[in-house]
């Protein structure tokens, strides 16, 4: 047989990879590296001052902490919503399905104003929580509420198709073998949807870290208490402290990158443990 060059069955690898990298560069990598370049115009002391002052550190904690909690909440309730939407038929299901995407479509400022209106001391929900000693608006809890709101669609939309794919027969098989509902869930369903669930978590988390519009209204923005990092960046920009703003942004980028990388690593690791990826 003649020695042929090793051809890929899918042609155009070089061309499409080239375009993908060019596209990613223009849209993502170049603007982000500009952030770092601008941040490095500061000397070390100023840089440290900008990114490690107590107020900024408090905002990191709030942003990443609230985003993490919000994403976790979304994992639980997003899964529940996806479950209801795939496994049951009920009146108005299409309507509920469309509702899920609402946080995507709504301008975030509108969401923020609406949330702060209903959760404030005089709002619908806020006035009922007040006697119980729960303050939502203008506290870190409010931040969590807003970040949960905007992250919901991610988990639902990543888990939903996987659940739809998972045949009811597999669950029936498990039940006929004597498994109870809980065993069916954690031995059969969970391993199947686990990758999608983590992807949904990562997306909701990433989105929440960068969220600005919906948070600032309900957060109250008290320094050291309910001030998020994106707000700090905006504040610095408004004070024409461009280098300081980009320095904080650069730190956020690095932390986000490390966290998302860690989440992907965890996903890879758990996939291997669960025997997926085959």
């Amino acid at each position: 047989m003649k020695n042929r060059p090793n051809k890929n069955t899918l042609p155009g690898f070089n061309l499409s990879l080239g375009y993908a990298i060019l596209y990613l560069s223009l849209i993502v990598i170049i603007p982000l590296s500009a952030t770092f370049l601008k941040a490095f115009t500061l000397n070390w002391a100023d840089f440290w001052q900008a990114v490690a002052s107590p107020r900024v550190v408090a905002s990191y904690k709030l942003t990443f902490g609230a985003s993490f909690i919000g994403a976790l909440i979304n994992v639980v309730f997003g899964l529940l919503t996806a479950w209801v939407l795939t496994r049951y038929h009920f009146f108005g299901k299409k309507f509920v399905d469309a509702f899920v995407d609402f946080p995507f479509a709504l301008p975030t400022a509108v969401a923020g104003i609406a949330l702060s209106a209903i959760y404030s001391t005089h709002g619908w929900i806020g006035s009922r929580l007040e006697p119980l000693g729960i303050h939502v608006a203008y506290t870190p809890l409010g931040v969590v509420v807003a970040l949960t709101f905007i992250g919901l669609p991610f988990v639902v939309r990543t888990v939903q198709p996987v659940l739809e794919d998972l045949s009811a027969e597999v669950e029936e098989a498990a039940a006929s073998l004597g498994a109870n509902r809980w065993q069916v869930f954690y031995k059969i369903i969970l391993p199947a949807i686990w990758p999608a669930l983590i992807t949904g978590f990562a997306l909701a988390f990433a989105r929440a870290i960068g969220e600005y519009g919906s948070v600032i209204f309900i957060a109250g923005n008290m320094p050291m208490v309910s001030e998020i990092t994106p707000l700090i960046i905006i504040t610095k920009l408004e004070q024409y402290d461009y280098a300081g703003a980009t320095a904080v942004a650069a730190v956020m980028l690095v932390i986000s990158f490390i966290l998302l990388f860690a989440i992907n690593g965890f996903q890879w690791w758990s996939n291997r443990r669960l025997g997926n990826n085959r």
């Binding site: 597999v170 098989a173 073998l177």
Partner: peptide, 22 residues
Amino acid sequence: RAVREREVGFVFQHYALFRHMT
């Protein structure tokens, strides 16, 4: 009686094996 209490073995047309298990 619920499925899991009936002590029946069920074999499905499309096997319904647990694909994440050996």
